[in-house]
């Protein structure tokens, strides 16, 4: 837990204080990708060696679709309800920035 926050915080602090040059950004991107693939393969290995989870993948798939649909529905409802309030706040700034009336 602390390790997660520490690593992330370190990255953000360094990235913000010293924005990366294009080569360094590529390097950081490569590091992220390597880390991600090691973790993906490890997740795969844990899955592959766990027959209970393998047998339950179909059930997990159905649960996944339901959870995703509810998350999307929640987000859509929240933004829909606040839409007009947010636009009222943004209108001036958008039109000022672009020199035209916004929607």
């Amino acid at each position: 837990m602390y390790l997660i926050l520490l690593s992330l915080g370190l990255g953000i602090a360094v990235g913000y204080l010293r924005p990366l040059s294009p080569e360094k950004a590529r390097l950081a991107n490569a590091a992220t990708t390597v880390g991600l693939f090691v973790l993906l393969m490890s997740m795969g290995a844990q899955l592959g060696s766990n027959e209970d989870v393998l047998a339950g993948l179909g059930r997990l798939g159905l649960q996944a679709v339901i959870l995703a649909a509810f998350s999307v529905l929640g987000s859509v409802i929240m933004v829909y309800l606040a839409r007009d309030y947010i636009y009222r706040g943004l209108e001036q700034r958008l039109s000022r920035r672009q020199g035209r009336a916004s929607r």
Binding site: L10, A13, N29, L39
Partner: peptide, 10 residues
């Protein structure tokens, strides 16, 4: 991976 993600976000 998290340091890399942080660097990108920052």
């Amino acid at each position: 991976m998290l340091v890399g993600i942080g660097l990108d976000l920052g």
